[in-house]
């Protein structure tokens, strides 16, 4: 039962963007809802794989050999490799999606959330199952956040936002109001 609660927690209560505040800059970029969905899916996939590989690298390699200060470079390397791998196979499976990612999946690896989740797993010392679930659900939470923000940004397209607030400021304020709504999930997990 607590696995289910943990999953709901990762997606809704401790949403990676609105509660744990990782990957906000990338979530807030101006994109159409379809592109946002594709980007979210890509990040979710890379995040899950990275979390798994990071857990493997960490528990098998780094901790036994007391090299945990090398976590950050190691996880970054893993993230880069996975996103390149992802780009290659995405190119074969669904080239249309690849264009929407502007042809290069590497920025996905540069997403703060991907590395953040891997580090969180390592520091919290999660078992394999929890590490995988954390990666997957946080990725789903990121997808939800990106799509919601893309939807809201599209609704605000013709709003008469004062000039200095156009662009990132209004995106942050919208994210803040969405985060205010997400507080409703508090206590669920």
């Amino acid at each position: 039962m607590n696995i289910l609660l943990f999953m709901i927690g990762c997606v809704f209560t401790h949403n990676i963007v609105f509660d744990r505040l990782l990957g906000v800059g990338d979530a807030g970029k101006d994109r159409r809802v379809e592109v946002a969905a594709v980007y979210g899916l890509a990040v979710c996939a890379v995040m899950t794989l990275t979390a798994v590989c990071a857990w493997a690298a960490d528990s098998l390699l780094l901790t036994p050999m007391k090299l945990d200060f090398l976590r950050v470079p190691a996880f970054t390397l893993i993230a880069i490799l996975i996103s390149l791998l992802g780009q290659v196979c995405l190119g074969k499976v669904k080239p249309a999606w690849l264009e929407q990612l502007e042809g290069c999946a590497l920025p996905v690896a540069a997403n703060v959330a991907v590395l953040g989740v891997a580090l969180m797993n390592a520091e919290a010392g999660y078992s394999f199952a929890y590490a995988l679930l954390n990666g997957l659900c946080s990725g789903a939470g990121f997808l939800l956040a990106v799509v919601l923000m893309a939807g809201v940004r599209e609704k605000l397209e013709f709003s008469r936002i004062p000039a200095p607030f156009k662009g990132m400021p209004i995106t942050l304020i919208s994210a803040g109001l969405i985060a205010l709504a997400f507080i409703g999930f508090k206590g669920m997990a």
Partner: peptide, 8 residues
């Protein structure tokens, strides 16, 4: 102090 406040 909450994340929502931070955004705003």
């Amino acid at each position: 102090a909450l994340p929502a406040g931070g955004f705003l």
